[in-house]
Amino acid sequence: MSRFLIPGLRSLRSAAFGADPSGARLARIRRSPNFSVAEGSFQNPVGARTRPTGSTLEFAKIYFRKEERVRRGPAGTVPVHATTLADLAKPPVGGLRVTWMGHSSVLVEIDGRRVLFDPVWGERCSPFSFAGPKRLHPVPVPLEALGPVDAVVISHDHYDHLDMPTIKALTGTDTVFAVPLGVGAHLERWGVPADRLRELDWHESAKVSGLTLTATPARHFCGRGLRNQQHTLWASWVVAGSEHRVYHSGDTGYFAGFQEIGAAHGPFDVTMIQIGAYSEYWPDIHMTPAEGMQAHLDLQGGEPRGVLLPIHWGTFNLAPHAWSEPGEDTMAAARRAGAAIALPCPGEPFEPGSGSVPTAPWWRGVALTP
């Protein structure tokens, strides 16, 4: 009976669920060396458990217990730098400026071009306006006030990285969208013209406005709907300009491939590394701060070069750990490694080579004390 219901269910799906790859796109997916035809899904570079491990009951107790819910959010108003056009009007003195907009959304101004990673301006990372993880702080700047962007880069299709309202708003601009293989189906459904898509498999590159954008491996998974066909790839990204290089991890568990990425594309002026939403229940698909620091070192050839910007924390409540824990543990990991980190509050621009990178623990004023 279910086979007769599926077409009807498809027609009822919210547009936010996106679209399944089909036609030439699906054929290309099936030819990918990273796709298993036998299993009908993309494969990780090393094995990864993509579903929570351990007792579901124990996890539910921890996640929904009132005192645990309280510690996973700030105790006061999160400080946000009200980014203005004046902040961004002057080109960066050294040719590279980075503005963390919260979670994994980052504006990178690099060698005269502007790249926006994983833009999520929505109030919830969810297909629904009334349910799902809600923002813990406002966006630092309205999307329409951000100014022109040369490229929007998407790491994967989970709701906290690919936000339909944000993408729809950006379709009215001239920006090019760089996405992992298969993700273009979602964007086309939301109105992005095919000629503005650069859809890449791992180790493939595209030239956009003089920048080289390269999709690199990550250890994660994909999916936006209940059926979750695993027909969209996940990726980390390298963006290289004439003078600077940056790396965005997307979501990933730790794996030895960071060394290979660094050897092929590094070293980097800035690495934007996922260090939040980790848990012992899903250790293979999200890194802890200590693992994130090791990834940074691997990407830099084993040396504490460049600056690490911690991302994927502070904006949405997605894991059992305390809200401030990723920031505190990243600071501790940086001290142990002798590495430079940037700790801007959301919306605060900084230039990695300026010698004035923000390092104050801004969250302590609103974090619950243990």
Results as ranks from 00 to 15, higher is better:
residue 252 T to G: 08
residue 171 T to K: 13
residue 154 I to G: 03
residue 80 V to I: 09
residue 47 G to R: 15
residue 111 D to A: 10
residue 328 E to V: 02
residue 276 G to H: 01
residue 49 R to A: 14
residue 176 V to E: 13
residue 318 L to R: 06
residue 74 P to M: 00
residue 151 A to M: 11
residue 65 R to A: 14
residue 169 A to L: 08
residue 239 V to Q: 03
residue 178 A to G: 10
residue 297 L to M: 14
residue 45 P to G: 14
residue 222 C to H: 11
residue 173 T to S: 15
residue 9 L to S: 04
residue 176 V to G: 05
residue 302 G to C: 13
residue 216 T to V: 14
residue 51 R to H: 12
residue 138 P to G: 02
residue 5 L to W: 08
residue 176 V to M: 15
residue 79 P to M: 05
residue 85 L to A: 15
residue 319 A to Y: 02
residue 157 D to V: 14
residue 6 I to F: 12
residue 289 P to F: 04
residue 43 Q to V: 14
residue 365 G to W: 11
residue 315 T to Y: 08
residue 28 R to A: 13
residue 15 A to H: 10
residue 69 R to K: 12
residue 35 F to T: 06
residue 108 V to Q: 02
residue 182 G to D: 09
residue 156 H to D: 10
residue 289 P to W: 05
residue 251 D to G: 11
residue 354 S to Q: 10
residue 137 H to L: 07
residue 347 G to N: 00
residue 305 R to Y: 03
residue 110 I to M: 09
residue 326 P to T: 01
residue 42 F to T: 08
residue 6 I to K: 12
residue 317 N to R: 11
residue 258 F to A: 06
residue 89 A to G: 10
residue 276 G to N: 04
residue 294 Q to S: 15
residue 129 S to A: 15
residue 141 V to G: 01
residue 359 T to Q: 09
residue 138 P to N: 04
residue 3 R to F: 02
residue 157 D to I: 08
residue 353 G to N: 12
residue 315 T to K: 06
residue 262 G to N: 03
residue 286 H to S: 12
residue 153 V to W: 03
residue 86 A to K: 01
residue 124 R to N: 07
residue 312 H to I: 04
residue 250 G to C: 07
residue 62 I to G: 04
residue 29 I to T: 05
residue 208 V to L: 07
residue 64 F to P: 00
residue 18 G to E: 03
residue 253 G to D: 11
residue 283 P to M: 08
residue 211 L to A: 08
residue 44 N to L: 09
residue 246 V to H: 01
residue 108 V to N: 03
residue 147 G to W: 08
residue 33 P to D: 06
residue 287 M to A: 13
residue 94 G to E: 13
residue 268 F to H: 08
residue 142 P to F: 00
residue 111 D to M: 11
residue 181 L to R: 05
residue 208 V to E: 05
residue 218 A to Q: 06
residue 16 A to F: 05
residue 356 S to E: 01
residue 360 A to Q: 06
residue 50 T to H: 10
residue 15 A to F: 07
residue 79 P to S: 00
residue 335 R to N: 05
residue 226 L to W: 15
residue 128 F to W: 14
residue 168 K to M: 13
residue 331 M to V: 09
residue 65 R to D: 11
residue 192 V to M: 09
residue 217 P to C: 04
residue 249 S to P: 05
residue 57 L to I: 15
residue 189 R to K: 15
residue 87 D to S: 03
residue 67 E to G: 00
residue 350 F to G: 02
residue 114 R to Q: 10
residue 192 V to C: 14
residue 41 S to E: 14
residue 309 L to V: 00
residue 61 K to E: 13
residue 265 H to G: 02
residue 60 A to E: 15
residue 352 P to E: 01
residue 101 M to E: 02
residue 261 I to M: 12
residue 336 R to P: 12
residue 328 E to Y: 09
residue 88 L to C: 11
residue 229 Q to N: 15
residue 322 A to S: 07
residue 163 D to E: 07
residue 275 I to H: 03
residue 167 I to C: 01
residue 297 L to C: 12
residue 85 L to T: 12
residue 82 A to E: 13
residue 225 G to L: 12
residue 163 D to R: 06
residue 358 P to C: 00
residue 65 R to K: 14
residue 280 E to L: 13
residue 109 E to C: 03
residue 6 I to Q: 06
residue 57 L to W: 15
residue 370 P to K: 10
residue 9 L to M: 15
residue 218 A to P: 04
residue 352 P to V: 06
residue 183 V to Q: 09
